[in-house]
Amino acid sequence: MLKPYRNPFASLASLALAAMVVLLASPSHLFGYADPGTGAFLYQAVYAACIGGVFYFRKFLARIFRKRP
């Protein structure tokens, strides 16, 4: 079985992303002491994924409209 090729830069990128998660996501989670709930938190994650997608879609649409004066 072929061993999959691992791009060393990809590992570095993952490491950087992991560091970003720690650096960027942690502060509010450390001191945001309110119980995040279970269902409401999952709903928020699903919502973020959907609206996050819409964000790119909107940018894409904006780019199209910008090209047409």
Binding site: L24, A25, P27, G32, A34, D35, P36, G37
Partner: peptide, 19 residues
């Protein structure tokens, strides 16, 4: 009020607001 992580897209207090 606390400083947000720039790319943090979650609001930990959302569930508390709902409750």
């Amino acid at each position: 009020f606390e400083r947000r992580g720039a790319c943090d897209a979650s609001w930990m207090a959302y569930a508390q607001f709902v409750r």
